[in-house]
Amino acid sequence: MSTQALPSEPGPARRTVVAAVGGVGLAAALAACGDSDSSDSAKTSGDGGTGGAAGSGAGAAGGGVLAKTADIPQGGGKVFADQGVVVTQPTAGTFKAFSATCTHQGCMVKDVADGTINCPCHGSKYDPATGSVTAGPAPRPLPAKTIKVEGDSIKLA
Results as ranks from 00 to 15, higher is better:
I117T: 11
A97W: 02
S36R: 13
P141K: 15
D82K: 14
G22P: 13
G25N: 11
P10T: 05
A32I: 04
D82T: 08
A13I: 04
T50M: 10
D152L: 03
T91D: 14
V85W: 07
K148M: 08
A31I: 12
D40Q: 07
G49H: 04
T16D: 13
L142K: 12
G49V: 02
G52F: 00
G77N: 09
D37E: 05
I147W: 01
T116Y: 00
D111C: 11
D114E: 14
G11N: 05
V149M: 04
G57T: 13
P7I: 05
L66A: 13
S124K: 09
V79S: 12
T101V: 06
V79I: 12
G136T: 09
P120E: 07
K145W: 12
P73M: 03
T91E: 10
P141Y: 13
L142C: 03
A27W: 07
R15A: 07
F80V: 00
A31K: 04
P141M: 05
A113R: 14
V149S: 12
L30S: 10
V24Y: 07
A13G: 10
G51H: 00
K68A: 12
G106T: 09
A31D: 02
D127P: 01
R15E: 14
K68R: 11
D127S: 10
Q105D: 11
S45V: 08
R140H: 07
P128H: 05
L30T: 13
K155H: 12
K78A: 13
A27Q: 02
D37Y: 10
A13K: 07
N118L: 15
A61H: 09
A28C: 03
G84Q: 11
D127A: 13
V86K: 15
D71F: 02
P128I: 00
P141I: 00
A5I: 04
